[in-house]
Write a protein that binds this DNA or RNA. Structure first.
Lengths: 148, 148
DNA sequence: GACAATTACATTGATATCAATATTAATAAA
DNA sequence: TTTATTAATATTGATATCAATGTAATTGTC
């Protein structure tokens, strides 16, 4: 007799076809690759673009709210800021009113890179959105927000 | 006069609110964290679960088709297999009919872990799906597939 | 059958991601 | 005002991700 546990192949097919986690990871990777490729001439990745765009505020941002907005761990944000700071696109200053906190802002060259990225974003985003049936984008955004 | 390029804050808000890339990355991270947390007692991440499930086939799989199915780069698959092989959950054998290729299969202990993960997947998936309006899951899957 | 082109996979280097933990500063309670 | 708690961020270690590139084996062409 065999003691080997076998998962029915039908279960595998069910998980493959229905798993929202797999579906969303897969779409996230594919969309990320499209934006990464389009932004590559600027030396930006999709994540760096989103991060820098979220720093484009009237007032410098603290780290916590930015991490929450992007739905990333705070430690991920710390790591993600390093290459941007090294390139001189983001400035990270201690907050004099709370010395635990940091003030995050775009430098002039950071703003210039981001401004150059906006038209690329528009074109790429239109291409991605065109892959969806008409009118589905808004509902998709709502559903993705519900999962976040 | 100032030479600093300023991106209108309204542009930032537009990108934040409408960017499908940001939305899907954010949802992917949030859903991944849920599954990772649920699967943690087994020592599995969501990605490892999906990978191992995709290896649960009647015949051993080659690397290329698995990478395509998961929409990951082939080099990512090479890296992702290493911890699974090290733990004895996946076997990676040369294909005698094509010595460039590999035969990927689950070991008995890999099958056991995967079998233990299935009920966890079911519960977690139901929780995630419950966050969506009734009937939206199927359309969401189709839209995510269209973006992949 | 030799050689060019293609295919399948691995390696390297950089960044992304998170859990666990540590550090430092602000706040609240005694 | 100590002291305990909470809050904001950093560090470490492991895995994930991809581009660029390298290696080896197969296939197609002559």
């Amino acid at each position: 007799m065999s003691n080997v546990i076998e998962i029915p192949f039908e279960t595998t097919l069910l998980v493959r076809d229905s798993c929202l986690c797999l579906h969303v990871q897969r779409a996230a990777r594919a969309v990320a690759r499209r934006f990464d490729e389009a932004l590559r001439p600027l030396g930006l990745t999709n994540g760096q673009f989103s991060l820098m765009m979220s720093l484009n505020r009237p007032e410098p941002a603290a780290m916590g709210p930015v991490a929450t907005l992007l739905a990333i761990d705070q430690t991920t944000l710390t790591a993600a800021l390093k290459p941007l700071e090294r390139r001189g696109w983001v400035s990270i200053l201690p907050n004099p009113k709370d010395r635990r906190a940091r003030l995050l802002s775009l430098t002039p060259s950071g703003k210039a890179v981001l401004a150059a990225a906006v038209p690329i974003w528009k074109v790429t985003h239109a291409e991605v959105e065109a892959r969806l049936p008409d009118g589905n984008a808004e509902r998709l955004r709502r559903d993705l927000l519900a999962l976040s």
